[in-house]
Simulated scan of single mutants.
Amino acid sequence: MRSMRRLICFSMLLFVAGLLLGVLSTSISLTQSLGTIPTLLLNMPRFQIFLLIVKKNAKSLIMLWSGALTFGVTTLHNLMVNSLVIGAVLKTAVMQMGLKPHS
């Protein structure tokens, strides 16, 4: 029980660290870096979007299953990448709403 609690605390610490890095390291807003991707998705047929999502989810599933072979390294990688993306999205949303972060 104690070791599980330590692992959860370690995961939460990694997530918060990635979140902070995502907020602090983005100098370009996501809308600038994404460019025309949202308009391309709007113009794609629905079935093609469905296949794109299934393909991405299959890759994600394979990545998570490989975590058993790599002793959780890929899971930690996914945790960090997802938290970085969430941090960048939060910063972009705050900037688009016109709110200024504390400096």
Rank of each mutant, 00 (worst) to 15 (best):
F15M: 09
I53G: 04
S60C: 12
I49H: 10
K100D: 10
L99K: 02
T26K: 12
L14H: 04
I8S: 12
C9P: 06
L34W: 01
Q48W: 07
G87Y: 02
P45L: 01
V54K: 11
I53D: 14
A88D: 00
I62E: 05
A88Q: 06
V94A: 11
K56W: 09
T31S: 14
K56V: 13
F47W: 13
R46M: 15
V85P: 01
L24C: 10
L24Q: 14
F50L: 15
G22T: 12
A93Q: 08
S60H: 12
Q48Y: 10
M80N: 05
P45W: 00
V54L: 14
G67R: 01
L79Q: 01
L34I: 08
M1S: 09
S29W: 05
C9Q: 13
I86F: 00
P45A: 04
S29V: 09
I37L: 14
I49W: 06
R46G: 13
N43H: 11
S29I: 05
S27E: 14
L21Y: 08
L76A: 07
L69D: 11
M63N: 03
C9E: 14
K91S: 04
K56A: 15
S103A: 10
L61A: 09
R6I: 13
P45C: 02
S66P: 04
K56E: 13
V73A: 11
V73W: 08
G98F: 00
I8Y: 08
I62D: 08
R5K: 10
W65D: 14
Q32G: 04
I8H: 12
I37E: 03
G72W: 00
V85L: 13
A93M: 09
C9T: 14
M44G: 05
S29P: 13
K55R: 06
M12I: 12
M1L: 11
K91D: 04
L40C: 03
S66C: 10
L69A: 13
S60F: 12
A88I: 03
K91C: 08
L34C: 05
A68T: 07
Q96N: 11
Q48K: 10
G35Q: 03
I37M: 05
I86R: 00
V16W: 06
S29Q: 12
L99D: 15
T36Q: 11
A88G: 08
L99M: 07
K59F: 14
M1E: 04
N82K: 01
S66R: 10
T92M: 00
A17L: 08
S11D: 02
V85I: 10
M1V: 08
G35R: 03
M12Q: 14
F50W: 15
I37C: 04
A68V: 07
M95E: 13
I28E: 03
M4N: 13
L40R: 05
N78A: 15
L79V: 12
G87T: 08
L69F: 11
T92I: 02
S3R: 05
V73F: 02
G22M: 03
A17R: 00
R6T: 11
T74Q: 07
T74E: 15
G67T: 00
F50I: 06
V85Y: 00
N82M: 06
L90V: 07
H102W: 09
H77R: 13
G87E: 03
T26A: 15
V89G: 02
T36G: 11
G18N: 07
L24T: 09
L21Q: 07
L84I: 12
L40E: 07
P101T: 00
N78T: 12
V54P: 11
T36Y: 09
M12C: 14
S83T: 08
I49G: 07
A88M: 15
S83V: 05
